[in-house]
Simulated assay, not measured.
Amino acid sequence: MDSIGIIGAMELEISLLLKNMSFDKEEKHAGFKFYLGKIFNTDVVVTCCNVGKVNAAACTQILIDKYNVKSIINTGIAGGIHSDVKVCDVVISSDVAHHDVRKEQMETLFPYRTSFKSDENLVKTAVCACEFIGVKDWNHHVGRIVSGECFVSDRGLKQKIVNEFSPHCVEMEGAAIGHVAHINNVPFVIIRSISDNADDSANETYNNYESVAAIQSANIVLNMIKLMKDM
């Protein structure tokens, strides 16, 4: 199969994609559902990995092994970290990193790197998709996305992550997806719409913008597929 793999952590993050999809079949492996079909006449496998890096890594490996996808797009929401990134802005990954694993460990143990670089063509396509939408209410940014096994809602932890990694946003799956994609030589990109500022008010802001941000990120992925089809 020569499909695009699309991963969201929550059903909300893939609901718009499923609405625009013509289904061939649905399969289940290790508790994960995989939806096979077409979006804009392009073969896709859409899946929900659930929250957290371990879930994301396991789901990604199944997507690669079982469906032999040619590329992976991860869609979802995140907490803004960079001062230029506002709620409802979009961050496209230049690279991804684990903020809760020591850099020394990543450097000295397999796969011997502290971050994983996104595919340049997928990044360019994501940028074009944002520009194609042409909405003036939000900006798009290309920058580092970091992941860890916690929801960041504390200014102290946020500042620690900023000092160590200089990311644009923080979430809980992207680095695991990029890590697994990298060791399998599969191109990837992470798309994140900002639901909160990863600070002391994060829980309240997240609740207000979760749905808006999730739909916005999925809409960018839909436009990416349109552009990739025409290339």
Rank of each mutant, 00 (worst) to 15 (best):
A213C: 10
V45I: 15
E149Q: 09
C59R: 09
I73V: 11
I194C: 08
K38Q: 14
D137S: 14
V45L: 06
F32E: 06
N121A: 06
D65H: 05
Q105R: 13
N50Q: 13
S193P: 11
K33I: 13
E107V: 08
L109D: 11
V127S: 00
M10N: 12
E171P: 00
E173S: 01
Q216D: 05
D100W: 02
K38L: 11
I14D: 03
D137E: 14
M1T: 07
W138L: 04
Q61T: 02
S217P: 11
R144I: 02
L227W: 00
P187L: 01
D154A: 10
E11G: 14
I81S: 00
E171T: 08
E131F: 07
I39N: 02
A78F: 11
G148K: 07
L222G: 00
G79S: 06
V180A: 11
Q61I: 01
R155Q: 13
I225T: 05
F116D: 00
E11V: 10
V85D: 06
H82Y: 12
K53C: 09
V127T: 01
N74T: 05
V90R: 06
K28S: 08
M172H: 02
K229M: 07
P111M: 03
D95W: 04
K124N: 12
S147D: 02
N41K: 15
M21Q: 00
M228F: 05
C88W: 07
G156D: 13
D89C: 05
F34W: 03
L16Q: 10
F110Y: 14
N219F: 13
V46D: 05
W138V: 02
G156W: 12
G174T: 09
N68L: 10
M228P: 03
Q105G: 08
S3F: 08
S115V: 08
A9N: 07
T114P: 09
L63K: 05
G52C: 04
M106L: 15
K25E: 14
L122M: 08
V101R: 11
M10T: 08
H168D: 06
Y209F: 15
N208L: 15
H99R: 10
A9F: 04
I133H: 00
D200N: 15
Y206S: 01
S217Q: 02
H82Q: 08
G5D: 04
D200K: 12
V186E: 00
K19V: 03
